[in-house]
Design a binder for these strands. Structure first.
Lengths: 220, 220
DNA sequence: TCCGTGTATTTTGGATCCAATATTGAAAAT
DNA sequence: ATTTTCAATATTGGATCCAAAATACACGGA
């Protein structure tokens, strides 16, 4: 048997809880603003409250949940200002990451990016929203990882996490899925020609479209 | 009696542990690279291991300590590359924060900044290294807070935390303390004239000096 | 002498139990 | 009817205890 068939439970309960909580938040099972009842969640996940609380602490560090002493944890609700701020910071950090990545980009990296893009298109064709979000994420993170700046990449990843709760809504729209594919292709094209400026520009457009679509969703 | 005399212990043990751990790391009592023995630390701080571990989880999220499953926590050691990366990211984020701050800067803000600077000069004159680091931090964070971008400020604060373990070494040198004061004055001057470009430039110099001083310290 | 192996000890991860705080709801006073 | 007070309940924070993993170490073999 292959070692990674049928994803095993991670070596520690907190890691298991962590991935489960992420999924619950990104898929919307835990709504933004909803309080997190530790006892119920722990029972549902078949663990005690200790690893659950440690997982929540890391999620708090990532800005996915908030915590008030003696009151508990809540899934964060992003205000419009929050959303714009997150995307502004992403703009700054991702530009740096992309420029570094282009400078270091190997053919092997490009091949990986193209494979990621194929996965995105497959998911879009199937209309699988969840697969689409994860494939899209993989595409971008693969690029950022090429920057050779692990801390920068980690920060960007955290910023993505912050808006994950809303991303699934975004990909629910078929038009958005179509456009994402086109924009990715433009980015890939710029990368193949090692044009940092164009790659940055295409990704800026990509991001701006996303935030424009997300903004109305946040009023409700 | 005033409500905040003789700083009370925080309302929860983890918050208490958190500030204690920060101090231990920044003052060097916990050396970079040192493993963190939970049992000993918990006993020393007179708490159980549960709040200690939750505090460590938040420190992990801030990048002050690392964690390996079943092996435990360690105070992070910054490599030269790490240091340069952290300062590069700070460069990007702080420029944005300063530009926004200048755009919004009120006279009251300026007064607070000048007060903070006085505190820095007082600490420098007294040769109090610890007071100097905290006063310097207050000066910069006061400015960043004026940006009106709380998440951005939080990220910057986290990046500062990352190098706190080395900052005290930096301020141990009298020449560095002198120069910091001059550079702050130049920044204040630019801020009074609402010149974002100059403020950014002076802070860039400020930062570059710090990283140049810190680099040799990291080889040992 | 060096290396592998198996056991003892240490240390971390997790579960249960208890304490402290917050929330809810009902009764009483205005 | 509205508000205040106080008790009952629910929920979080923390301590202790147990299990699992990793490390240290002694022993035996080449």
């Amino acid at each position: 048997m292959s070692p990674d068939e049928a994803r095993r439970r991670p070596p520690t309960a907190q890691q298991f809880v962590l991935t489960e909580l992420r999924r619950a938040i990104t898929t919307g099972r835990l709504r933004p603003g909803a309080p997190i009842r530790q006892d119920a969640l722990a029972e549902e996940l078949q663990v005690s409250r200790v690893p659950l609380r440690e997982a929540l602490k890391t999620l708090e560090g990532e800005g996915l949940v908030t915590h008030q002493a003696h009151k508990g944890y809540c899934v964060v609700t992003l205000s419009l200002d929050d959303l714009r701020e997150v995307y502004r910071i992403r703009h700054l950090l991702e530009e740096e990451a992309v420029r570094r990545a282009v400078a270091l980009l190997t053919d092997a990296d490009l091949a990986r990016l193209e494979a990621a893009q194929e996965e995105v298109e497959r998911a879009a064709a199937a209309g699988d929203v969840l697969a689409m979000t994860t494939a899209n994420r993989t595409f971008h993170m693969t690029l950022f990882d090429c920057s050779g700046m692990p801390r920068l990449t980690r920060l960007i990843r955290t910023l993505w996490d912050t808006t994950d709760a809303y991303r699934s809504m975004y990909y629910g729209d078929a038009g958005n899925r179509e456009r994402v594919i086109k924009e990715h292709r433009a980015t890939l094209d710029a990368l193949r020609r090692r044009s940092a400026d164009e790659a940055v520009a295409t990704l800026d457009v990509h991001r701006d479209h996303a935030v424009a679509e997300l903004e109305p969703l946040l009023d409700a």
